[in-house]
Design a protein around this nucleic acid. Structure first.
Lengths: 340, 340
DNA sequence: CCTGGCACTCGACTGTAGCGAGTGCCAGTC
DNA sequence: GACTGGCACTCGCTACAGTCGAGTGCCAGG
């Protein structure tokens, strides 16, 4: 598989042209639009090799060539430089963060910004509770037997849940419970709490124990197991860009996938330390998303990562541009979080 | 405009057939499928009248008839009975509410349920803060100059916001502030708070005044003006049902409209006391949604209304069925809220 | 007022033909 | 040995003509 420099240049040119025009690209058009310094016939020979190796394919016998997932992969890995942002884009990113007022606000602005910049579907995961530390736990009596538990995490996330207590709880007990849980849990990572919570129950006075037991169950259940992750989405209308050519005519499977939190989390949540991840076409594990690509990365204050964000679009997308934007946005969001 | 009973029956039959088959319906097919007791020719005459009056139209000269928005309107207002729910649907609604654990949970389950039952896009507005009463306000110190304000409303809604105070605040001050705002505001409707909040500032001791002023600004700003409304959405994949026939081939405008909270709020939020509202085609004010219909209603504990919910789909939708489901779901959600 | 009959319209479908972009291959050239 | 120009070939796309049939409007008669 001798892919010499010119063949790679041809592949790059094919990807770039196809992404730009959305039309299969032929040998003649290629030599006209790129300075390859050879004739169409030569390019055709190169194309034949590229096709044999599975990097491009012909939709029909008499049509031009289109990159395969494998071709995009090679392009992303070896043939493209991350595109520097334009001043306008840079400005847009800077502007979006002024006036962000709390975490919800930051996340919503971020996801809209990302959708607008990349013209793709944008996905932002809220800072993961598992990676957050408890900053404060508040217990608010709602009725004699009901407490509202509010947890504030150091990442700014706030989760609440109603707890039905085994019996009526006097105000002093609430105060005691509040003090105890805060003493024990504040500052610890959510993922490390289970033993701590257990200890809380064990160490409680007999009077508080039943209440503490219920409370601890709910804490573990809600804050560790359930909602846990939360996700914001924007730019779904961008899926209709490019007519019905992308996504082989049906948005259905894509829209379905986007409604599943679990799917989105898998796509953008499982990010290894600070690399930008690119999933092309069927590289991702969901059948519904075989016609889509995902560019994602982690973000967080400083160098830690508390969540993921990214964009989803047709495999025929501007990878260098999108990678640049996803990274830039992640970095800015990280800085913003670090300020709090 | 003499629309005798038979003409109305013909219109009803056209709507029903068209909704079911998605194809223009002709006079012959009509008499075959419905017991109208007259010949196709007669039906044709009736159709001519209906068309003249603007209730139906012909897509092409040689095609059958299709209801117009006006036709659907007449159908909804005078020709249809609300369809009783099937046992399966009833069961689905009942099942969805078991195990709902807090407001977020209720809203999410509701919107998914509604999307699944109606096979349309479902929209649920969180209980409006303007119609909620303050149950508790919590102030949590985040740093020496920062407070997290958490407001819990009687509808279960919890809103929070970070406040940057004018200067460092000692713990005692936080305690005082907390006591003051709670004394003054708990139990009052959010929409009525502005004067109360102002009074709080005026009555503060000089020591607390600057802090209270900042706090009040934020309270008004965040809880009354901004986020205020919140919305959940589900079932967007249902838009692709029925191919590209509905929505004249492009989902674009619809998807765009669905990304605008303001639009959704206008559609389902402005509900008059407990009637079910049906907006057909261009009856709604948004150009993007001229090809869509919306069925919505208010919900709330008992007979009060705290928010709206509804579904959005093609004008060619099963109005009687959707109206029934929207109502049923709203009633169940109301009961659920009343229990808390 | 309803009905059967009839002429008419027009979209959907089919088949044919020509065009042109694009290819693969081959023989010739540097 | 690598590149190139030339050439025959493929095949999707478009235009056009013809047919079919669902559906209509109208009219005369019951």
């Amino acid at each position: 598989m001798g892919l010499d420099d010119r063949k790679l240049a041809v592949l790059r040119a094919i990807v770039e042209d196809y992404v730009a025009t959305q039309e299969p690209v032929g040998s003649k058009a290629l030599v006209e639009r790129h300075q390859l310094g050879v004739s169409p016939a030569t390019v055709r020979n190169d194309m034949a090799v590229l096709e044999e190796e599975g990097y491009i394919r012909q939709p029909h016998t008499s049509a031009g060539r289109v990159p395969t997932d494998r071709g995009y992969r090679l392009f992303v890995d070896r043939l493209s430089r991350v595109k520097p942002l334009s001043p306008a884009e840079r400005r847009a990113i800077e502007r979006f963060l002024v006036g962000a007022v709390d975490l919800d606000d930051v996340v919503h602005r971020t996801v809209r910004l990302l959708a607008q910049l990349t013209r793709q579907v944008a996905v932002v995961q809220y800072p993961s509770l598992a990676r957050s530390k408890v900053r404060h736990l508040e217990l608010v009596p709602i009725s004699t037997t009901r407490l509202m538990v509010v947890m504030i995490a150091d990442t700014g996330r706030v989760e609440q849940r109603l707890v039905e207590m085994p019996g009526p709880i006097p105000t002093e007990d609430v105060t005691d419970l509040r003090r105890l849980v805060n003493e024990k849990l504040v500052g610890s990572r959510l993922s490390e709490t289970p033993p701590l919570v257990q200890a809380l129950v064990d160490e409680s006075t007999p009077r508080l124990r039943p209440a503490m037991a219920t409370l601890s169950t709910v804490l573990l259940e809600t804050l560790v197991e359930r909602h846990e992750e939360r996700i914001a989405l924007a730019g779904q209308a961008n899926l209709t860009r490019g007519g019905l050519l992308d996504f082989q005519g049906s948005l259905r499977p894509i829209l379905e996938a986007l409604e599943e939190e679990v799917v989105l989390l898998k796509l953008i949540g499982e990010t290894e330390p600070s690399t930008t991840r690119v999933l092309i076409g069927d590289e991702n594990e969901f059948d519904n998303l075989r016609a889509a690509s995902v560019v994602s990365t982690g973000y967080g204050p400083g160098s830690t990562i508390v969540g993921g964000l990214g964009v989803l679009g047709p495999t025929r997308m501007d990878y260098p541009g999108n990678i640049a934007m996803v990274r830039a946005v992640a970095r800015y969001v990280g800085e913003l979080l670090a300020q709090n």
